[in-house]
Design a binder for these strands. Structure first.
Lengths: 234, 234
DNA sequence: TCAAATACACTACCATGGTAACATGTCAAT
DNA sequence: ATTGACATGTTACCATGGTAGTGTATTTGA
């Protein structure tokens, strides 16, 4: 009873013309990822439905999907809770993402299609602008887009979906890490190295740079484990 | 109206003590994989609920999950249909599975834990028995278990779930391929080579053997494309 | 003959009510 | 003080009714 929802603003605007369930899913997911909904917090169907002004059915469907993402834990007849940040699951998410994205970038490098490279370079340009302007959100959005371009360019849309799903676990950790000066520029350089490898058709180099790029999260995890170990469970 | 359900036996026995939705999901999924439900066939919530003796809600949840697996297509306000076998999606499923399982087996080989190896060899023994007895179903079950052991032994349960999900696309193609003499023995030999590489801690060799093992499906696809191209869509 | 309009059947989607499983607090018995 | 029985409230799960959107057959108007 004590931990009812404090929530100041509504989770998100809902467009009644579109389907409810996907919107609710996205809304709750975003709230979990930026920690507006905190680990272990109770999320009852009824309460969320009331808050969002919809019925319990689409809320329930959204929660089921979030459970598949590992972002909520559903205990039948007991309750649904925001999943705690479990080190093992974060590491496994990283493992899956790395395996897939490294394979993807290898394929992109093997093809080394000029039109694909052009689109990647356009993304790089936008990233550079965001870095120069210190536009964190803009960079993160373009970072996401950069990785999407890689998968989509070789028609691996399902792989991208899997990456997106597991990435939730990683994003929740990332928002906990304080933004460091020069970090964005570093990420940009890594993206640049990846594209350069793709241009030269050097898939081995592309894989290496992608691996290094993705393994940045380990630094974040280590730092958080040292500075704020109470964040993690299990 | 013409393509109503012919279905002789019920899809599966439902245990009312357990949760409905997961059972229904498994039941329908199995029927799709062994082609008792054929591509493009209509699957309405109402009809399935009637057939299974449950309400529409858990059926709907099962269908949503199957849609995420890419095994059914849901067209809002129009209908739900068994997904056609799309070459691109089968190939992408193979890509994802290969990326993950190769990475998994590399990790297993790096660790090269004796107790894991022992469990793998027990599985190999069971496989050998199935091959000698010509027990196809028994071998397939143990084949599944073999790959599960690999993921589970290094605590990559989510990776296993992803593999399982995408593998549906591959299984549906596999059942179309006629069983060839000596094929099972061949698969057994490949498993053996993988375990041998793990024993020697040779992760590069393990990756190579796993890749070769998984890429067997390409043979099946090529053969089907030549012999029964009408099976595929898009 | 043929196109536009209309009626109809059917769908997935959402809302809502009922229920068994589960947690928790109260109180009696020892 | 501890345990066990019982009352009460809460939950996710399932059943079922209503609705807007969508195809299709039929009718209408030339």
């Amino acid at each position: 009873m004590a931990q009812t929802e404090k929530q100041s603003t509504t989770l998100l605007a809902i467009d009644p013309k579109l389907q409810m369930a996907p919107q609710i899913y996205g809304s709750i997911r975003q709230s979990i990822l930026d920690l507006r909904l905190t680990p272990k917090q109770a999320l009852s169907e009824k309460e969320l439905a009331l808050m969002l002004g919809v019925s319990r059915t689409p809320v329930r469907e959204a929660l089921i999907k979030l459970a598949e993402d590992g972002l909520v834990d559903i205990f039948p007849q007991r309750g649904t809770f925001v999943a705690p940040i479990r080190v093992a699951e974060v590491l496994e998410a990283q493992f899956i993402r790395e395996a897939l994205e490294v394979s993807v970038v290898a394929r992109v490098a093997e093809i080394s299609d000029p039109t694909i490279i052009a689109r990647l370079q356009e993304s790089l340009a936008r990233q550079k602008r965001a870095v120069d302007n210190g536009d964190l959100d803009g960079f993160l959005a373009e970072d996401e887009n950069f990785h999407f371009i890689l998968s989509a360019s070789v028609n691996l849309t399902r792989a991208w979906k899997v990456i997106q799903n597991v990435k939730g676990q990683l994003d929740r950790v990332r928002v906990l890490s304080l933004p460091e000066p020069g970090h964005l520029a570093e990420l940009y350089e890594q993206h640049l190295a990846i594209v350069t490898s793709i241009e030269s058709g050097n898939s081995a180099a592309a894989k290496k740079h992608m691996t290094k790029h993705l393994q940045q999260v380990f630094r974040t995890i280590d730092k958080l484990l040292a500075q704020r170990p109470e964040i993690f469970f299990d």
